[in-house]
């Protein structure tokens, strides 16, 4: 069953992701954003299959629940008109397509050849992975954690500065 679920979630993830960046039917940013949300949720499914429950929850909570809402918020606030009045330059599409396909091919090949997963099995998580994560976060990774808090402060200050009205 896990295999089937994997293929379902994987297919959904990829499909949604593709539709997010290259939707042939709509170039509406809102559509892209919604597909991105769906991608995130399907990915959370993959996380669950990997038994990373905590991250699955965080993925939905932060990405789908907060980050993407922000995106949607901004798109709506700006009421960005669809791109369709502009035409893509063929050249850039071709160039982008070729380079990305090239990269994909290389990645595909290296993954295939390096046989990364050989001999590795998914080990069932014992107990709560959240507790283990939390412990590591506050011992071994305490410093990065604190740095990230500074980073969040910076982001906060930055956002306020960038978006507040001028008092003049």
């Amino acid at each position: 069953m896990e295999n089937v679920l994997f293929y379902i979630f994987a297919a959904l993830t990829l499909l949604f992701a593709f539709l997010c960046v290259a939707n042939p039917f709509s170039r509406n940013p809102v559509t892209s954003a919604m597909f991105l949300v769906l991608t995130m949720i399907s990915m959370a499914g993959l996380f669950v299959l990997l038994q990373a429950f905590f991250l699955a929850a965080v993925q939905i909570l932060v990405y789908a629940g907060a980050v993407m809402v922000l995106f949607l918020f901004v798109i709506m606030l700006l009421d960005i008109k669809e791109e369709e009045r502009r035409r893509f330059s063929r050249f850039s599409i071709a160039l982008g397509g070729v380079s990305v396909i090239g990269l994909g091919f290389i990645l595909f090949k290296t993954i295939r050849e390096s046989k990364a997963g050989e001999g590795l099995k998914l080990v069932a998580v014992k107990g709560s992975d959240t507790a283990a994560l939390g412990k590591a976060l506050f011992t071994q990774y305490l410093l990065p954690f604190e740095i990230v808090s500074v980073l969040l402060l910076v982001a906060m200050v930055g956002v306020i500065l960038l978006s507040k009205k001028d008092l003049k």
Binding site: M34, V37, A56, I60, L61, L72, T130
Partner: peptide
């Protein structure tokens, strides 16, 4: 009976906003 029950709830609840936002949009 999830180990991360509460997080799951919060995650899901945070998705609720989409309905309203999209409705508005």
């Amino acid at each position: 009976d999830l180990n991360v029950g509460i997080l799951f709830t919060f995650g899901i609840i945070s998705l609720g906003v989409y309905g309203l936002v999209l409705a508005g949009y």
